[in-house]
Design a protein around this nucleic acid. Structure first.
Lengths: 345, 345
DNA sequence: TGCTTTTGAGGGTGGGTTTTTTCATGGTCA
DNA sequence: TGACCATGAAAAAACCCACCCTCAAAAGCA
């Protein structure tokens, strides 16, 4: 592995390093003859400058780092696509790191990216970080004013910029949708409480019932334990008498599983059971019938977050004042809550 | 944004740069008093060495780059998880870049990662690269022996290492599965021919029919044009008389759509129509009934690719001889091809 | 006073950019 | 014809940040 460097080129051609550097930049200081000779050699050996050296010299890499729990989630991949669109339009490249929902990996990747690898970092919190509530590893970067923007899950107590959705309102609207269909025995499939996103959706669910003067049946609120088989846990809802006639799941996976379990019990969808999920996901479009969902507009979330970050990066020296942006959610009504869904394949 | 550096620390404490450096490494050359003073200051200011400077100095970054078309695909995210497992066990971190299936982005990200950002790169070809058949941007790296390993889609004419699956054989087995069920009017939903992976699966489909002395009905071979609505195209298959009684789709998305369209026509699954897909995907587990698929073992593919790469990285100076590794595929029989599927939720 | 040990300063390295310096040539003018 | 300056071309040096080897100065000890 011997990559050409300015030094090796200079040596081979008997000129100085600076001459090679200038020739490559078409500096008028270098005579056409010398320049041509150098350019010729560089083309032949496919010279490319070392990006580390460039980054070190310019204190700028042209790179935006993104830390996500993992990218299997379609929602995150939509966010990333949005980030990329904005970043690339501004001449930046995007590198992605996975935290695997672990605090340690989150911290280490942030250190890596922030210590020279990237000009700014976009991230969403790892579950473990949320659970522990320990956000100390962000403090040094926040204090120094390193460009940092959160999306979706963020440390609410810290003075940081973030792009989120109004989960409570979205949860309320999804529930309201079920109520408008005349459903009254509503069930909720949620996550553990420490996942604030799921918790806020639950708050929205409760609010919708309250607003309509309906009681919340705590037996119909299911908090999934991800370490145990999902199907088993969800099946419990169908064993109740009477079973629920409407289910709001805080993500599309839980909703899809509920839908399929309902098929097994022979329930008619949506007449006997309506199901609505959450997420700008890919599963929802491939269930039968297809799932109604609250859509999160991940693409726009990514775009907005990237715009915030670029503003921070390019506003040199001005300490950015934290701002929270809220992305609207939408409701896509598909077959799981309507006999006459609008959307077609 | 003023991050502490060795120099700034040295200046602040009135010592030399080398003293600070040694103190941080607990060198016995530095007196306990001085060392404590320096460590104290570094803790206070949260000093972290600059990764670019480290990379430059050591000619080693401890990072593995991965280039994928995008991560929305569950399969790729499984591969990445496999890569990460092996990489992290060996003390490497993983950074991911998206090519968006564009050659330009693929080339630029490779340049970025290979020019100092990473010690080695794992990648799968962008669709555009496959379509154009132009692999020149890989040549300089291959010639220099830069550690590079392909997975899934790779340039077959080039002397490179790759980890793939035997798509032809997998396609044959999936088709054989349908034939064993007694299905005879088999349809294939495939991709454009330039996607070699889809093409090889098609070859397997043809081989299975041939082996069983059955003719291939070209009308039942559908090549999807991704720019047009998928549903429209797939619907065509159901308009044929008689309609197919078995469908093999080269990915899970096409299979899921076919499954749902079949519901609309009222066909019984799997009695009147059996559907089998391809991919270690997430959609397959959420359709109704759940999809039988050829599983690609993305996780193992990622592990194997990472192992090959690490061997290349750590075998310094020895020009690696290219090797192709083939990962076994499996068949997971779910409800779409069996009334008594084994797998449960 | 002379020798050893401790302590830490200094400089080179990695690869590139950029500013400053050097040097040779050519022209102008007395 | 020689002194002086302008010009152009390229070399040298500084810088970015951390590491590491070499070596000098100061302190300790007999």
């Amino acid at each position: 592995m011997k990559k050409p460097t300015l030094k090796s080129i200079a040596k081979a051609l008997g000129v100085s390093v600076s001459t090679v550097s200038k020739a490559l930049k078409n500096s008028p200081e270098i005579s056409p003859r010398t320049r041509e000779r150098i350019l010729e050699y560089c083309r032949l050996h496919q010279y490319e400058p070392n990006r580390m050296a460039l980054g070190l010299r310019h204190r700028r890499t042209g790179i935006i780092g993104v830390i996500v729990p993992q990218t299997g989630h379609y929602f995150f991949s939509r966010v990333i696509t949005g980030i990329q669109k904005v970043a690339e339009a501004a001449g930046y490249r995007v590198l992605i790191a996975h935290s695997n929902n672990e605090s340690r990996a989150e911290r280490e990747h942030l250190q890596l990216l922030a210590n020279g690898y990237a000009d700014g970092v976009l991230l969403t919190l790892a579950k473990e970080t949320l659970q522990k509530g320990d956000f100390r590893h962000f403090l040094p970067w926040i204090q120094r004013g390193f460009p940092l923007v959160f999306f979706d899950r963020y440390p609410e107590k810290l003075p940081v910029s973030a792009v989120i959705i109004d989960d409570t309102e979205a949860g309320r609207r999804a529930t309201e949708h079920l109520l408008r269909m005349g459903k009254r025995r509503l069930a909720l499939i949620s996550t553990p409480v420490y996942l604030s996103v799921g918790y806020r959706r639950e708050l929205g669910f409760r609010k919708a019932l309250n607003d309509n003067g309906l009681p919340v049946d705590e037996n119909r609120i299911l908090r999934i334990d991800e370490r145990r088989p999902l199907g088993e846990q969800i099946r419990g809802l169908f064993r109740q008498t009477p079973p629920p006639d409407g289910i709001f799941a805080v993500n599309e996976q839980y909703a899809a599983i509920a839908l399929n379990l309902a098929h097994e019990t022979g329930m008619k969808i949506p007449a006997e059971l309506a199901v609505i999920g959450f997420s700008d996901g890919i599963i929802a479009r491939h269930t039968y019938p297809r799932l109604s969902t609250v859509v999160q507009h991940g693409f726009r979330m990514g775009q907005t977050a990237a715009e915030l970050l670029l503003a921070q990066i390019e506003a040199d020296e001005l300490p950015p004042k934290p701002q929270i942006k809220i992305i609207d959610t939408g409701l896509v009504v598909r077959g799981s809550t309507s006999a006459y869904p609008v959307e077609r394949l």
